[in-house]
Design a protein around this nucleic acid. Structure first.
Lengths: 189, 189
DNA sequence: CGCTAAACGGAGTCACCCTCCGCTTAACTT
DNA sequence: AAGTTAAGCGGAGGGTGACTCCGTTTAGCG
């Protein structure tokens, strides 16, 4: 890869990161290209789909997350609290950008996309924790981590607010940690 | 309302219903207008937002659903099975059109839109079942039906497949009824 | 220094949303 | 039956964003 191309790529990921943070994952790609000072064609050449760009932005962050799962699975800690801790982290990571949980939900089924592979990595990591808990008799046997992950992404998705809320209602805010607690209770034997 | 306007309105709802069924709730509104044989302006005059059209399509269906809740709440039936039955129905109704659960999730916060009011109606209906169950000591006291409804719409949302699946993965299909079971377990005392 | 493949960039095409306004017509009045 | 008029109609037009294509530029090698 040519030096200029590499520079542009890095700049794009950097700009995308901050654009996702402020405007959610559905920001206009043309806007990102403009802010990065490159043509839209350059963005598309490097990241043919939006998901590729998302995956690039998330790369290191998600590697850390799988590492944590490995550590938690190997430590002698209580299986239940290990699961609780990791699911909390997982949910918080899926909540960093508005729209991300939706993208994750969509990508989870795609075998051969960058974001899809990342998600599969998360599932594999979580599976470790789940099966350990199942062997210890803490969790029901009729579920897979895919089910649990689905519920977690669903919670984040459901709790997510869209940017503008002109007629904000007086409905109570939903507490994602309460919902996670419901799920945790639901998966115990 | 003039006779021709009424005719057009009915035709639009009818066409929208079938378009939503085949293409999901995000179908092009221009396509709906075209199929209904009216101009796009006419559609927008009658249904200023997409949500208004959705609400019109769902109107009777959702009235029935609240009725069922009332009946279930008044019958001497077991509170737990009443809740299970109604949540199952609720989920199935939210799953009839791809994208509907998303629209519901968004609309739930809007006090003064047609779809928003419909959703609030659902929450009120479900609240009856929940509080009855809570009084009977069957469900935890720290949750509202809003939480439960959120989980249900989240499940539907998470399970929903997008239309085209070019690279369908070999991942197991998630079973929404299993996820509902997790939630039900999670809300019991 | 010259060459060339890699990279660039933005104009162009497409799809959809939504508004605005001149024309049409249902339906009431006399 | 004819006249009146406000309700209704429709589609052109303007805006936004995705994505492609191809003529131009340039990094980096020999």
């Amino acid at each position: 890869m040519r030096a200029d191309a590499l520079r542009n790529r890095e700049r794009l990921v950097e700009v995308a990161q901050s654009a996702f943070a402020t405007n959610g994952i559905d920001t206009s790609l043309e806007e990102i290209a403009r802010q990065a000072g490159v043509g839209i064609g350059t963005l598309y050449r490097r990241f043919p789909t939006r998901e590729d760009l998302i995956a690039a932005v998330l790369a290191e962050r998600y590697l850390k997350l799988t590492d944590v799962a490995l550590v938690l699975a190997e430590e002698r800690e209580d299986v239940d609290t290990a699961m609780t801790e990791w699911l909390t982290l997982l949910m918080e990571h899926m909540a960093i950008y508005r729209g991300l949980s939706m993208a994750v939900k969509e990508a989870i089924h795609d075998v051969d996309t960058a974001l899809g592979r990342t998600c599969r990595g998360m599932i594999d990591a979580g599976e470790l924790l789940l099966t350990r808990g199942q062997k210890a008799g803490a969790f029901r046997l009729d579920i897979t981590f895919y089910d649990v992950m689905t519920m977690c992404s669903a919670i984040v998705l459901a709790v997510e607010r869209r940017s503008e809320k002109p007629n904000a209602s007086e409905l109570p805010k939903v507490n994602p940690y309460l919902l996670l607690d419901i799920v945790l209770r639901g998966i115990r034997v």
